[in-house]
Amino acid sequence: MNRPSPLLLSLSLFLGLAACQAAPTQAPRRPVARAPSPPPAATPSEVEGAWSFRITGDRCIARVAHESMTLAVTAGPGGKASFSLTAPARSLPAGRTVRIGFKGDGGNWLLPGRTDAQRAASASMTLDGTGEGRIRDLLGGGTVSVSGSGVSAPALSVPDAGVSGRDWYACVARQTQS
């Protein structure tokens, strides 16, 4: 009886091992395989919000709202005013130092701010002549943006607030005077 040749044995062993290794690749595909993700949605670099105004107690409150970015302006009480920006998802980082800037026809300004745990960016200022002027600039229309590490929120285009905003501004001016 002839002994199998070493070559054949090696070949068989190789093929056997190869078969064993190839088995998984032959298994049916997982039914839960993740669908190919769509190309990442192009985040608009700028969105346009719409104004609304309110006077409540000792506060004058204005909002420029868009689904991707909302700015709230609160004047008073205590001679303070604040800007607060919120955006969905994670386009604003949590607990970071940021800068809130505005560019418009009336003027440009930049305020240091911070995001909180809920990823809302805010900056406050004294409601003096400068602060009042910043709000006035904002009411004239322009663009508000948040900048800083981890920020991917779009810029917010702020339309001219029109007569409603100019009427509301009287509330801000009263806060300054008081």
């Binding site: 719409a50 104004w51 609304s52 105004f53 339309p159 001219d160 607030a161 029109g162 007569v163 409603s164 905003g165 009427d167």
Partner: peptide, 8 residues
């Protein structure tokens, strides 16, 4: 004229 925000 009034814009999107109605005056008071």
């Amino acid at each position: 004229p009034v814009g999107t925000t109605l005056p008071r």
